[in-house]
Design a protein around this nucleic acid. Sequence first.
DNA 1: GACCACTAGAATGAT
DNA 2: TCTAGTGGTC
Length: 779
Amino acid sequence: MDFISDLNPEQKQAVLHADGPLLVLAGAGSGKTRVIACRAARLIADGLAEPDELLAVTFTNKAAEEMRERVKSLAATGARRPWICTFHALCARILRREGGVRVGRDFVIYDSADQSAAMKRILHDLDVDDKLLSARQALAEISEAKNHMRSPGNLRGESWSARGDLLAKAYERYRRALEAANALDFDDLLLETMRLFEDREPVRRRYGERFRFIMVDEYQDTNPPQFRLVRLLTREHRNLCVVGDPDQSIYQWRGADLSNILDFQKHFAGATVIRLERNYRSTQVILDAAGAVIERNRRRLRKRMRTDRTGGALVRCFRAGDDLEEADWVTARLREALDAGETPAGVLYRTNAQSRVLEEALGRAGIAYRMVGGVRFYERKEIKDTLAYLRLLINLDDDVSLRRVINEPKRGIGKGVMAALEKLAPEPDAAGPLFAAAPGDAGAADSLWGRLNRAVNQELVPPRAVGALRGFRDLVQALRGLTADRPVADVVGEVLGRTGYLEKLREAMTEEAQNRIDNLMELVAAARDYEIREAEPSLTGFVDGQSLLSEADEAQGSEDAGVWLMTLHAAKGLEFPVVFMVGLEERLFPHARAVGGERYERIANDDLGEGDPAGGERAGGGHNEAMEEERRLCYVGMTRARTRLVLTSAARRRVYGEYRDTKPSRFLDEVPADLIDVVEPVFSTPVRSPATYGRGAYRGQRRGPADDDRIQPDYGYAYEDEDQSVVSISPGDHVRHPTFGVGTVISVEPLTDDMKLTVSFRDIGRKTLRQRFAKLTLA
DNA sequence: GACCACTAGAATGAT
DNA sequence: TCTAGTGGTC
């Protein structure tokens, strides 16, 4: 086993540990993925376990994929492959085999869009005012309750209020709706598996005995149901190896419980603890900078990361005038990085909404990028529609899917017909809900499909509606007949053909329609890949995979693009030679939710006075858990960098299209000043040059008396020459720029309070400038 | 029933 | 700024 000789002593110890519980505290860049993969490989190679007696659980599909590849390259696994998957995929797999307590084997998985559709209906039926309780809020609270294993009757102490009352009602209805549709949401996958193991001991024991060795990656992010599942599965062998880093816990908002890792030795008596503190990724400067930030957190285990890469480039900081300028500046620096061969470069932001300006700036500069996450592919209507058809074929009682496709493409089943269907009373002698009903084509009596059948058979709706509904029913039944035993790709093809979906798009003859067709062909290709890859392919398996794919697994752009854009959360587990963290501003990062606690919604643009940067944390007399999580997120971002780290912010930023002034993030203050290199703006003259960054120099300039709504240049830059902005410039003018030299104006585009100029410079080519910043003179 | 124009609300993070 | 949802018109 060659792979062991390359490991350092601690890594080796972790890899060679076999029996009993093991906690590996693995700091950023300490090679933890490698340790897990090597450990799996060694257990197989030494005959301590058959491959399929190993279970390795990760948090993202991406991580699972990587792990699978690594293990495969280290050990021959043959047909009995180890189980390497996410918690959710593990649960889906077990539930498909065993069936659940509340659902049958043919359940569907509801993703967030499905959840939202279901909840909107419920709140509508309950006649709830959106302002009192939105579907979004209701789902968030329900998820929170599930993550803490609370039932509808036991929502957090608000049950006395009107809203709490409503919430409990909505929760109960939501639960019933999913049960009737034989559906599980993401949280349910975990809970249902937990219930299965707790109610059916023989099933639990079978899995407990089977998985001789269990490994859990990113253990600091496990939530209570996940913890319970781990306990249930390790009762027999107790060979549990968990790997994680408390400083990188960034999912507490999703119910992750830090005490799972902090109290591991209490939960699993006799556990061995190994610390990996040697960092193989970053320079000492980067580690020191990140270490200084994370040190401010109270709830953590002390550790000090070491690297052989002493010294290193200082952390560069830049404060731009606004978000556009920030994006342009980052783009220019990215160009330099690409030219220097520092690829790929990672650009990390706190919120997805920040990606747009960056994408546009990169687009203008002609730099190819890959965007991890975001919403695009996942949200595409044609993909969702097709998957809804497939899900309906698997489970006719899936009301959400049925609703989605019943009139897509248009077949004359509109609002009127649907309302009539819903009005049909449930059948009096209906067998209980859900899968107690015969699984045949009749469907549960209470589901829309059941009602549809009755409406057609007994002609309970107007003749024209009966005809349309019958057409749809026959179509679905015909498709069901075809699905049996056909390759998945064929089924997808049949759906697209027989429903007329593809034809409708072809008729449209627009570019957009062609795009959609291309996307659908991609889906067919994905089905074909799935068929080849999987040992026992099935339509259900394919659809599950698609449902469990997150946005984070979808990426726009090619893998060898020089620039990768993503949120800080999505960056966990990755590394880049250069990392740009953008938008380091109070209330963006750290996010307002952590800064202002409950107040944040009411605070607008005018709340920008001097303030204690740690005020949010000290408020309330204790430490601020949310702020500590933001800080860990900052730590995660910084430690993604191998050699260079760049931190930027903007003095003004558009939120919903409106400009807001900002304060620099407290995290900038927390990086020791001697590790920072402040970069001056090129496009304008700073009012003063700050000796120490963030110690007030750039901070908190109040707007003047609010008697003038025009946005003032009061965020650190000023024009000596007010006349500049009055000079009128038009296309064709010859201009001179202090840095870029002479050029010709190509176009002029008015903005709210400025002009956007495109200028073709003689020496450096085309540039987009804003007149306020660019010190242009007529040449 | 389908299509279009208008408005209100939105965006922390992800399986 | 962008989108989902609503209401009006054909």
